[in-house]
Structures are given as structure tokens and as C-alpha cells.
Design a protein around this nucleic acid. Structure first.
Lengths: 151, 151
DNA sequence: GACTGTATGTCAGGATGCTGACGTGGAGCA
DNA sequence: TGCTCCACGTCAGCATCCTGACATACAGTC
């Protein structure tokens, strides 16, 4: 069987990367006034929706290693945006929760990010939203099929 | 006007990020036997299609800074995959070109990457391919609208 | 009770990519 | 000619995230 090479013009992979880079850039710019990186925002968002989860669990949600998450959490901790108990209530996991300040900042950040998303989707016919999400999900499912390491 | 917050379950941004991470991971794994990173492959692919372009131009094509591209090119240069003149033929740009070895490796890499793309698209109805690309392109266009810095 | 497996937090080191700044070469214009 | 503006290559410093390794705590089995 003859194997085809990549055609740059029609590569879906390139299109995904472009979208990802553009989105990340737009989010960084939007979050800069709040002194938050995209990773930090993602962290707060997850923490807002699933209070009390461990750093490792958080890391998996945000697609970074738990080592990176420790550094990330420390920064948010120093700013008083979240709290962690000094000693683990059970096992080794230290459940993190947003402080009042953290929840307030998350609220601002979430609105800013939602605005970016709306701007991105403005160029898209409204009906295409669900199908785009479905198509992307199908791609992810096909890729992670053989199982994800350390997740 | 009441501004909405992000809903994690329905966020297109998250879907794009997931797809991007999954794709990058799959490509890294596929390219590892060839001792190429995703960035290096992207660099070779561009160079194969546009021989003689400068490092700065290459950097823009691959979404990295020209500083990073210099490091990247040096690695490929040391492996004899491409050539650059010692002195600029005009202006300051040093046009890069693939060597025979570079072209051969690119050929292998391109097939491997195409295979990953096919695997990704296997879970997608065939007709959805073009519309997915179109939708992503529309998103990118809407985001980069105010102009891209240093590009 | 002892052992194994899994999950978490943590430390050390390195790879990668970025921002900022500088010098140089060419194009455009008065 | 002299000046300005821009693009390219390059150096230095820094941030981020990674891999690898280790100790600890719980659940399961025997």
C-alpha cells in the first residue's frame, strides 16, 4: 500500500495547531490585565467547578504534569487566591479550594475568557458550533484510543 | 448587558486545546523513532515546500520566534539535514535548503505524520473533513482580526 | 502482620521557547 | 548624499514545563 505524505494546504493538524496558537494568544492577551496566565486561569476554573480536588487531579484536568502544577499552585497560593491544608486530611492529597479573592478573580477571568470565545465564534454560523465541538471530540477520541500514559 | 462566564462542558476552547494536545502527543510518539521533534518536522516540511526561505520566514510559518528557530536550525544543521551559506547572498537573510539526507528523512517523517492524521480522522465521517477545516479557519480568522504582532 | 500496587507530593536537572536588546544590511524618500 | 524605517541574525537572561527519581500513605491480597 502506497503511503501518502502530508499536504500542508489541506492538513487538519495544521489547522488545529493554528487555532490553538491563535486562541492561546488571544487568551493570554485578555488575561494579562488580571495578571493571570492561561494555565493559571485553567487551574482556577477547574478549582471553581471541582472544589477540594488534589493537585495531581488538577494537573490531569489542565494537561500539565503534577510537578508543574505544584509550581503553578504555589504562585496562586502566594497571592492568596486559594488555600491548602498544612497536613493531608487523608492519604497524601492536599485538597485545594478557592478563597474569596480567588473566586472573585475567577469570576472576572471567566467573563474575559468567555468574551474571547464569543469573538472566536463570531465568524462561525451559529449552527456550526455543536458540530465543530463534536468533530473535535471525535478526533480526540480516535487519537487517545490506545490509552493515555500517566493519566 | 450581562456577561456570561465560561461553561467548561461546552467550551470550544477546551475542545481545541484537547485536540491540540492529543495531536501533538501522537505526533511526538510517531516521530520519536526518527529522532525528530514536532517543531523540527514542521521546519523540514516547510523547507521542503519552500526551499531557500530565511530563518525568520521559517519561524513565522512554524509559529515560533526567530530566536527559537535559530536553535532549531542549528540542530538540523549539525545533523546534516540542511545547508545554509556561510555569508548572505543578499541582505542579511541566510536561505536554507534541505540536503539529500534531509529530504529523505522528511519523506519518512511526512508519511508517518500523514498516518497519524489519518488515524485521527478515522473517527470522523468523511464528509466532515472539509467543514471541520473550514470551521477552524473561520475561528482563526476571527481571532487574528486585530492583527498579529511581529508577524 | 507483611507484601505489592497505586497514587500523591517533592526534589533535582535539563530541554525548550520566550522577551529584550543590539548591530547590520537594504529599501524608500527628501 | 543623508536620513529613516524595517527585516534579519544574534547574544543574554528568564520562564515554563518536562523527565527521572525518591519517600510516603492507602487499598488490596495472602
Amino acid at each position: 500500500m502506497e503511503q501518502e505524505r502530508v499536504e500542508v494546504e489541506s492538513s487538519i493538524g495544521l489547522a488545529i495547531k493554528q487555532a490553538s496558537v491563535a486562541l492561546r494568544g488571544a487568551m493570554e492577551a485578555a488575561l494579562r490585565p488580571l495578571a493571570l496566565t492561561v494555565s493559571q486561569y485553567a487551574c482556577l476554573e477547574q478549582l471553581g467547578q471541582r472544589p477540594g480536588i488534589s493537585a495531581s487531579e488538577l494537573a490531569r484536568s489542565v494537561f500539565v504534569t503534577r510537578q508543574s502544577m505544584q509550581t503553578l499552585l504555589q504562585g496562586l497560593l502566594d497571592r492568596g487566591l486559594l488555600t491548602r491544608p498544612d497536613s493531608p486530611p487523608a492519604g497524601r492529597a492536599l485538597p485545594a479550594e478557592l478563597t474569596e479573592a480567588g473566586a472573585a478573580l475567577l469570576d472576572q477571568a471567566s467573563r474575559v475568557v468567555a468574551q474571547v470565545e464569543r469573538r472566536m465564534l463570531a465568524g462561525l454560523p451559529s449552527g456550526h458550533l455543536d458540530r465543530l465541538r463534536a468533530d473535535l471530540a471525535a478526533c480526540v477520541a480516535a487519537l487517545v484510543d490506545p490509552g493515555v500514559p500517566d493519566a
